[in-house]
Write a protein that binds this DNA or RNA. Structure first.
Length: 167
DNA sequence: GCCAACGTTGGC
DNA sequence: GCCAACGTTGGC
């Protein structure tokens, strides 16, 4: 039994376009490297993640936009292999295997929300008034979430922390 | 070190 | 498809 202790870990929000890779895709594959992050602030957050940290899986560029489920960090930061993919969209000529510039983590699905908790809903929650997500003009694709924000999102989905516990 | 140009993100 | 906001690049 894994007891989820919300205060003992950090929480995050990961954005993804469901037309490219949605929460259902994560459920289907079981585990996925979170690669392709090419923003330094987002990269630094990836590097702060610890195994077991819980992440809100956010659908951007979707109808509606919002949180579709909860994922868990399965492997802590390691070099993003796409930065060495010559000719690929995430190739970085300034990066070397000796000094990799970009990192990725592995994530796995924990729980799909019964319905998407929309951005519109999040904006109504007191806990979410001060977040890079709801602040205008912020485009961070990886951002920290407070335990209160995480809990509020869970509750808005009609769930409780007990729903995250697994054997 | 400044800053204009450009590319990207992401809501609508 | 539009466009506001932002990060990055590169000339100087």
């Amino acid at each position: 039994m894994v007891r989820v202790t919300l205060l003992a870990m950090r929480h995050w929000l990961l954005k993804s376009e469901p037309a490219v890779f949605g929460f259902n895709d994560l459920v289907r594959v079981g585990r996925e490297p979170w690669n392709g992050v090419r923003n330094y602030q987002a990269r630094n957050f990836l590097r702060e993640m610890r195994a077991g940290d819980l992440c809100l899986f956010y659908h951007s560029g979707a109808r509606p936009t919002g949180v579709a489920g909860v994922a868990r960090v399965a492997r802590e930061a390691y070099p993003d292999d796409l930065q060495f993919g010559l000719g690929g969209p995430y190739f970085d000529p300034k990066s070397t295997p000796e000094a990799p510039r970009w990192s990725m983590v592995d994530v796995e699905p924990v729980l799909a929300f019964p319905g998407v908790v929309t951005l519109e809903t999040l904006r109504t929650l007191p806990e979410w008034q001060d977040s890079p997500l709801t602040r205008k003009g912020t485009r961070l694709s990886v951002l920290p979430v407070t335990p209160e924000q995480f809990l509020a999102a869970l509750e808005a989905a009609g769930l409780s922390p007990e729903d995250l516990e697994s054997d």
